[in-house]
């Protein structure tokens, strides 16, 4: 088997690759932030909410974790259209990714919340802190610090999984690649290039989250020990 690699025909497309990569990063960043907020709220609801909230969150998490992302993306995309609301493919992609990663975040953060010992809450309660203050200062911060490595992996996965939104023609990196390979008939080379770009993006996301962690978790930065 002799295959002649030819990357030269792809060279002309580098601005499009770059644009696709940029959109992938943007989709991922927005979905990460919103998914984190959604997931954390769900985790609190599941840990400390009234029974109906617990049930609602548990159902949401189980449905999302046991159905394919691709199907979720289609349901969001066509569901929104059926409701008569006009949103762009990119917005639909973000919604689907947020709903998806929110469920996984919920489970990870819940593990973190459960790791905070009851005696910590008692101490804070005895100091007169209100429930929201206890949550913010005594529970959420150490909880997130403990599960931050798991969250980092989840958000790198999210960035990679965003390639699926190419199926609803969000113009992210994989969608760009699909178009280029059909233009050039250089499928193998195109996806090799795209693979390398994703590898680089993963690296960027990891570094970004690592730096963010250093900035936020002062104790960890100073002592280097796990909480």
């Amino acid at each position: 088997m002799t295959y002649q690699f030819d990357f030269s025909s792809l060279w002309a497309y580098w601005p499009e690759f770059l644009q696709g990569a940029w959109l992938t990063l943007q989709l991922s960043a927005v979905s990460t932030v919103l998914g984190f907020v959604l997931g954390t709220l769900c985790a609190i609801g599941r840990a400390d909410g009234p029974p109906w909230v617990k049930f609602l969150v548990a159902s949401y998490v189980e449905v999302i974790r046991n159905t394919p992302l691709l199907v979720q993306v289609f349901i969001v995309y066509f569901g929104i259209a059926t409701l008569g609301i006009k949103v762009s493919a990119n917005a639909a992609a973000v919604i689907a990714l947020v709903v998806n990663v929110g469920a996984y975040t919920c489970e990870i953060v819940r593990a973190g919340l459960e790791s905070v010992h009851k005696s910590q809450l008692e101490a804070a309660d005895c100091l007169g802190l209100s429930k929201p203050q206890i949550y913010w200062h005594v529970i959420i911060r150490p909880a997130i610090e403990r599960v931050y490595p798991a969250l980092t992996s989840q958000y790198v996965l999210l960035m990679l999984a965003s390639s699926i939104t190419s199926q609803i023609s969000a113009e992210e990196l994989t969608a760009v690649a699909n178009r280029i390979q059909s233009d050039t008939f250089r499928s193998f080379e195109t996806y090799i290039v795209v693979g390398i770009i994703y590898l680089a993006l993963s690296f960027v996301v990891r570094i970004g989250l690592w730096l963010f962690g250093l900035a936020v978790f002062v104790r960890k930065r100073k002592l280097g020990t796990a909480l």
Partner: peptide
Amino acid sequence: VGIVFQSYNLFPH
């Protein structure tokens, strides 16, 4: 009322 516990219960972070 202030209370101090056997296990200190300082906030580790």
